[in-house]
Design a binder for these strands. Structure first.
Lengths: 163, 163
DNA sequence: TCATCTGAGTTTGACATTTGAACTCTGCTC
DNA sequence: GAGCAGAGTTCAAATGTCAAACTCAGATGA
């Protein structure tokens, strides 16, 4: 909202209850919820895997999962590991998957401003192989998400220094 | 990360400490921080204005502002209202302004999935006047943010019903 | 000179949430 | 039928949130 050198804005032009951003924030209100969605974006779907991956207390994970399932971002799916008993995996719904651009935009920002331009994930157009990013486009001009390929390029050497 | 019908992902390919998204989330960890940034996106910059606009307790606002100033998302700028004493406004830095695509992506998601497609803010390309959105683009193919014009289209009738 | 006002905080103390550890529950598998 | 593992639930202590009251500083007025 460039208001340049005029009178200051004293109130947002859109109240919280009418603002898509504010309403979205209400469905992803805290750090844990964001990190859980990040895990699912990466394909991690089991309770215990998410728990150890991001270091969240089980009690909190259980509560947050219930919330995002209730909000329809994630659904619980039965799976069976080998011949063991049925367990549940948490996977993004269509609604949840459409948050991916938000996560990618955050990642892009973090890579630029916190990691000094070093990205840990390469995004390319599956058809052309050309790199892609998140940005402003004319309506109808965006590439479909399903054409995007993700390739981790995290350099283990940095953390590891192994022989 | 489409892993289709193979073995499940048991661990994210990028650890939290190397993931731009996770690092970004650490700088905007809660609802209040998001809402404060939303206010600044809309141009609301004064302590008291932000406070009443989003209904945040003063003590919490004061703490959150200190955090985002320390993280460099926002800077404190002196202003003088009429002949009153110098006071401070909080405005986005370049780093903060580059979060705008994230906020817009959230807004787009909220408009689609919570407001059933009703947007309260129209985004257009300042040059052509054509509508724009946030999406995946070939690298280098995005429109610069400064070409985007924001126009509130919130329909007061809905909340108001005035004569 | 002194009292008052206003924006921007800080302090306070009651209340709510988060944390991590210990416990439970449920069906395997041996 | 004992042991195991994943997915929770329960609990007390630490931490964070809330609203109201208080502070502070400089302009303004009497």
């Amino acid at each position: 909202m460039s208001n340049s050198d005029d009178a200051p804005v004293r109130e947002s032009p859109v109240p919280l209850s009418e603002c898509g951003a504010a309403l979205a924030i209400d469905q992803i209100p805290d750090r844990w919820t964001w990190l859980i969605l990040r895990e699912m974006f990466y394909g991690v779907s089991r309770f215990a895997d998410i728990q150890t991956d991001i270091g969240i207390p089980k009690s909190v994970l259980s509560g947050r999962l219930a919330q995002i399932v209730e909000n329809g971002l994630v659904k619980k799916e039965a799976y069976r590991d080998g011949s063991a008993r049925t367990r549940y995996a948490y996977v993004l719904t269509q609604k949840g998957r459409e948050l991916v651009p938000v996560i990618l935009a955050l990642m892009q920002w973090g890579d630029k401003h916190i990691k000094n331009g070093e990205s840990a994930l390469e995004l390319t157009d599956k058809r052309s192989g050309n790199p892609v990013k998140i940005g402003v486009v004319p309506k109808g001009g965006a590439l479909p998400l399903r054409w995007v390929t993700y390739k981790p390029v995290w350099d283990k050497k940095q953390a590891d220094g192994s022989s």
